[in-house]
Design a protein around this nucleic acid. Sequence first.
DNA 1: CTTGCTTACGAGACTCGTAATAATT
DNA 2: AATTATTACGAGTCTCGTAAGCAAG
Lengths: 310, 310
Amino acid sequence: MNIQQLRYVREIIRRELNLTEAARALHTSQPGVSRQVRELEAELGIEIFERHGRRLTGLTGPGRELLPIIERMLIDVDNLKRVGQDHAAREVGQLVVATTHTQARYMLPPVVAAYRKRYPDVRLSLQQGSPTEIAMKVIRGEADLAIATESLDHYDELLTLPAYTWSHAIVVTPDHPLARRRRLTLADIAAWPVVTYSPEFAGRSRIDQRFAAAGLSLDVVLTAIDSDVIKTYVELGLGVGIIASVAFDPKRDRSLKRLRTDGLLPVNTTRVAVRRGTYLREFTLAFIEAFAPDLDAAAIRTMLAVDGTR
Amino acid sequence: MNIQQLRYVREIIRRELNLTEAARALHTSQPGVSRQVRELEAELGIEIFERHGRRLTGLTGPGRELLPIIERMLIDVDNLKRVGQDHAAREVGQLVVATTHTQARYMLPPVVAAYRKRYPDVRLSLQQGSPTEIAMKVIRGEADLAIATESLDHYDELLTLPAYTWSHAIVVTPDHPLARRRRLTLADIAAWPVVTYSPEFAGRSRIDQRFAAAGLSLDVVLTAIDSDVIKTYVELGLGVGIIASVAFDPKRDRSLKRLRTDGLLPVNTTRVAVRRGTYLREFTLAFIEAFAPDLDAAAIRTMLAVDGTR
DNA sequence: CTTGCTTACGAGACTCGTAATAATT
DNA sequence: AATTATTACGAGTCTCGTAAGCAAG
């Protein structure tokens, strides 16, 4: 048994049982992968993959039991390397942050600026994607952190930490009838066409829940994944905009008016997710710390430690 | 990096930083181990061991961080093998149970008899030792299960399951003054010399606590690790015996009288311990199930699953 | 001067890539 | 017919054992 064999098995499964694809992804030859897999199977005394003739068609029962152990071992391989790097060159390395548009556009810029100054030798890479995509990136080890408001809690493989809370803002054109109202109700908003986020983004689901709880349903005429698109169409008069309040800048967005909503809309929590069982390098913890004002390195370490005991 | 290197590192640490010993234990050459360790260190970019000249004198900081990851990976290597064996030959294999005298002598015989009939191809091996020793055996992977009444809860690496509860019995010679008393008190017992278990065995610590709580202290004139020794000396009139009640057999022990103690002495829980993170083969679960009347395979699996999520 | 780690070197095993083969879709 | 896994074979690498060297207690 060797680590390479485990990598091969994982990659074949990730590539949907296409051994050829896996070989390509791992920059090696197809026969090499085939052979190593068979050798591992022989050593363990079982078949990992179901084969119909010469095609891999699925995982066997034992194969399914093997998989989580293999994944954990490969994570641990990375962990060993990270421990090494963390001590060999404490503030040198790579940090991949997967995040959604709203975070990248409005919340992260100041954090990133400060972080880059503090850690000039960390190659910081931001990767934008949908909540599902960024969660998968972290689970597969392609990103170190995921930052998003929704749906990071649905994965057993992830450990999420609350970073900060925020709520939405209602924006309209200055000449919109709602602009004159002193106090809004949910029904006021629901009376107009709405422009807001796509279902899985930026707390959208919680908005829907709030209105549904009040017996109302929204007439959403345009959904977007980023706030700038929403603002653009609100300016065009397409409807009332619901955006993350951080996305509204009174100076820049002079053609829009933000309405008072005190407590009307739900509070959202933006969370940072890491892969359970991964070793976090010191500069990774520092990023979380910088991003989440309520968390300090000590608190993060304890949450990880409690979790990591298994 | 390869698995062998990790084994070498672990073994060196287990052998108290004696690389020569580690090489011997692993049936390989000293230079080979030395070389592989240096190569691992080079690949990770750190020193794992502190060296004074040519002697290994300790672990470095990064070395200490590496260790738990290495241990976990090596456990996972075994786990992979076990999954294989479990499917290749479900009821064939080896099961090592580490336990204390009282369990081995009184509680296990019927379980073992039934188990051997049910699983004739499982090589069952019982290893007797002190609670500390058997706990270490399981932690080091030398035994699959530990069965004992005390001190299995003090190890983070172990997961313990309650198997059954029991209490102690007071035994005396038939002509002892206490033999005529209808109802005993703690003070009655404390008035006489006592023969019982060594401090870490068979619930001894809880006996002491009980008497201490009542403001009494025991005059222990002989401590033993096994009940047979205790009974022998009680027969010789050395003192009042306190033994596990299962160790008293009215038919065999005709020269002793068991006194009524209803509720006087504390209740003990015998526990089964397994190494956290290890895959338990089906026949291992079956043994636990056979030993612990209150646990069934499903219950055990859930406890392990909850624990194993990490 | 004994114990114990490291360096040197050579034999043997193993991994991996190319080419050819066989089986599915 | 095209795609995909397995078998065959050979080059190159790597591991490991023996022997020699060297540092520490």
